[in-house]
Amino acid sequence: MHPLTEKQIRASFVNASRREAAQAALPVLSELDWDRLDYLGWRDRKAPLLAYAVVPGTAPDDGPTGVLLRATDPAGRVRRTGVCAWCEDVVNTEDISLYVARRAGAPGRRGDTVGTLVCTEFACSRNVRRRPTLAETGRDDPDLRAAVIERRIEGLRERSARFVAEVLREV
């Protein structure tokens, strides 16, 4: 993912008011390892029910698209065991949360939402890069491991972009 500025991130939100985007508590951007991120996701440290995800554009000329998410559990106390819909990691299944996003535009103003189960702390980019298990590769082969990781990364990018497309979709 290309490094983003605070201004780019705040301008990317498609389902948030200007005020909501301006009040978002951003992560420390200089501390992020942008080369190892497939999307930028974080929980708002000031408002525990709020979270954000910024997904890069699918075409080279497309800018990033940000979505405001709401956790269904205050302070994230109820964490589910399951598989994240974005990274589909089968090893780290202990910390999954249901996030709901208001749709963009008129559908969102009518109250239409879309939800997804995602890693509570948005660790998807790290999860897809973990060393594959022997069960995932079939044998201990560096080329197979690299292929599995590349397939996971592409899958994460595609599924997170599909979620953003669903937020943007006119119903």
Rank of each mutant, 00 (worst) to 15 (best):
Arg10Asn: 07
Leu26Asn: 04
Arg19Gln: 12
Tyr52Pro: 00
Arg43Thr: 05
Gly41Asp: 00
Asp62Tyr: 08
Glu94Thr: 14
Ser17Arg: 13
Pro27Val: 13
Cys84Ile: 07
Arg43Met: 02
Leu29Cys: 13
Arg77Phe: 08
Val67Phe: 02
Asp44His: 14
Ala22Arg: 15
Leu40Arg: 02
Leu26His: 04
Gly63His: 05
Leu49Gln: 06
Asp44Cys: 14
Gly63Lys: 12
Gly41Asn: 03
Ala59Met: 09
Val28Tyr: 03
Trp86Cys: 01
Pro64Thr: 06
Tyr52Thr: 04
Thr81Pro: 00
Asp95His: 14
Leu32Phe: 11
Ser12Arg: 08
Leu69Trp: 03
Asn92Tyr: 11
Thr65Met: 01
Val54Ala: 04
Gly76Asn: 08
Ala47Glu: 10
Val55Arg: 00
Arg77Trp: 12
Pro60Asp: 06
Thr72Asn: 13
Thr81Ser: 08
Thr81Ile: 11
Leu29Val: 13
Asp38Met: 06
Gln8Lys: 15
Val55Ile: 14
Ala53Cys: 10
Pro48Tyr: 07
Asp73Gln: 15
Leu26Tyr: 04
Ala21Cys: 10
Thr65Glu: 00
Ile9Gln: 03
Asp38Cys: 14
Tyr52Ile: 03
Gly57Arg: 05
Asp73Leu: 09
Trp86Val: 11
Ala59His: 10
Arg18Asp: 11
Leu37Gly: 05
Arg10Cys: 05
Arg45Tyr: 00
Asp61Ile: 06
Ala51His: 02
Ala59Cys: 01
Arg70Met: 08
Pro60His: 10
Ser30Asn: 12
Ala24Thr: 12
Arg77Lys: 11
Ala16Cys: 12
Leu4Tyr: 07
Ala47Lys: 15
Leu4Trp: 05
Leu69Ala: 07
Lys46His: 04
Val91Pro: 00
Ala75Tyr: 15
Pro60Ile: 10
Ala21Ser: 15
Trp42Cys: 04
Arg10Ser: 07
Val55Thr: 04
Arg18Phe: 02
Asp89Gln: 11
Leu69Cys: 07
Ser17Met: 09
Val14His: 04
Leu49Asn: 09
Val55Trp: 00
Arg80Leu: 15
Arg19Ser: 11
Leu40Thr: 04
Leu50Thr: 03
Asp62Ser: 14
Ile9Lys: 09
Cys87Tyr: 01
Ala22Ile: 08
Val67Arg: 01
Gly76Thr: 10
Asp33Asn: 15
Asp33His: 15
Ala85Phe: 01
Asn92Gln: 11
Val90Gly: 05
Pro64Trp: 07
Leu32Thr: 04
Gly82Leu: 09
Leu26Phe: 03
Thr81Trp: 05
Gln8Ile: 10
Val91Gly: 00
Ala75His: 14
Glu20Leu: 14
Arg45Lys: 14
Trp34Met: 13
Arg18Trp: 02
Ala51Thr: 02
Ala71Glu: 04
Glu94Asn: 11
Arg80Ala: 10
Thr5Met: 12
Asp38Ser: 15
Arg77Asp: 02
Ser17Lys: 12
Gly66Glu: 00
Glu20Ile: 09
Thr58Phe: 03
Gln23Ile: 01
Tyr52Asn: 02
Thr81Met: 09
Val28Asn: 11
Leu68Glu: 01
Gly57Trp: 05
Trp86Met: 14
Arg43Ser: 02
Ala22Cys: 07
Ala25Ile: 08
Arg70Phe: 04
Leu50Cys: 03
Thr93Ile: 15
Asp61Val: 12
Val14Gly: 01
Ser30Cys: 08
Glu20Gly: 07
Cys84Asn: 01
Thr93Pro: 00
Pro64His: 09
Tyr52Glu: 01
